[in-house]
């Protein structure tokens, strides 16, 4: 018997089932098809404006910095501001997300590099799929538009999130993701990011900038 068959048959023997019982099969099929939402957490159940405010408050509580940006056209200037305020060179790594790559970066002095990061970038910019108000969590999806390495390798992770993509809870975000990618389909990676990288492994003191970004800077673009 293969390891797979033996493990499954031990499980079935221990549970006292054959694996062919229709009620069990139906239960599993229904659960996977319907994906019940479970218990609702009241914190994020607000009008949309309140959700956006809560997202910003929660993100700041996890030591991300957050600014409002009136429209996509203002993103290059907001990035330039951040780089200048932090004495960073005017250089930025981005993917090919048209919402950002097609902006007029020429108005700023920023020199863009495109594609995934090789670990030599100080600052990178990705577009979030969503923000979740409940915990101030950014939801990043892997693609050529927003390469995963940009989320993790640069010291400064700059992230654009559209205010309309901010949800109250994780469950609503998953519904939106299914609507875009299809039921049961996932991007290669979905990264929830809740603040800058940190470690408490030395004497339980929390220090920022372990292996991932030392800073996370969120730009919330209004609708």
């Amino acid at each position: 018997m293969s390891a797979r068959e033996e493990i499954l048959s031990t499980i079935r023997r221990s549970l006292g089932v054959t694996g062919q019982e229709k009620p069990r099969l139906d239960t599993v099929t229904e659960r996977l098809a319907n994906a019940p939402r479970g218990l609702t957490v009241a914190r994020g159940q607000l009008p949309h404006e309140g959700q956006v405010a809560l997202f910003k408050e929660q993100a700041e509580a996890t030591l991300s910095s957050v600014v409002d940006v009136a429209s996509y056209q203002d993103v290059p200037a907001a990035v330039a501001d951040y780089l200048r305020q932090n004495n960073l060179p005017a250089q930025l790594r981005i993917g090919s997300d048209p919402r950002m790559a097609d902006l007029d970066w020429g108005k700023t002095a920023i020199e863009l590099s495109h594609g995934p990061s090789d670990g030599n970038d100080l600052a990178g910019l990705n577009h979030a799929f969503a923000g979740v108000a409940e915990t101030g969590t950014l939801v990043m999806t892997a693609s050529a538009d927003n390469p995963t390495t940009i989320n993790f390798l640069p010291d400064h992770a700059l992230v654009v999130v559209s205010a309309k993509d901010i949800t109250g809870d994780y469950e609503t975000m998953w519904s939106n993701l299914r609507a875009q990618y299809g039921k049961g389909q996932m991007p290669r990676v979905v990264n929830w990011v809740t603040g800058p990288s940190r470690s408490g492994d030395i004497e339980q003191v929390i220090l920022l900038g372990a292996h991932g970004p030392r800073r996370v800077h969120i730009m919330v673009v209004k609708d």
């Binding site: 994906a35 509580a61 996890t62 990288s197």
Partner: peptide, 30 residues
């Protein structure tokens, strides 16, 4: 079973472990 189920559990994981509302990185790989 589902993404909704794991979201319920994630709400008690970091809170119980490190006292964070959510850990910094939660990564779903497919």
């Amino acid at each position: 079973p589902t993404l909704e189920d794991v979201s319920q559990i994630l709400r008690v994981l970091a809170r119980s472990a490190t006292g964070q509302e959510m850990s910094v990185y939660t990564t779903f790989s497919t």
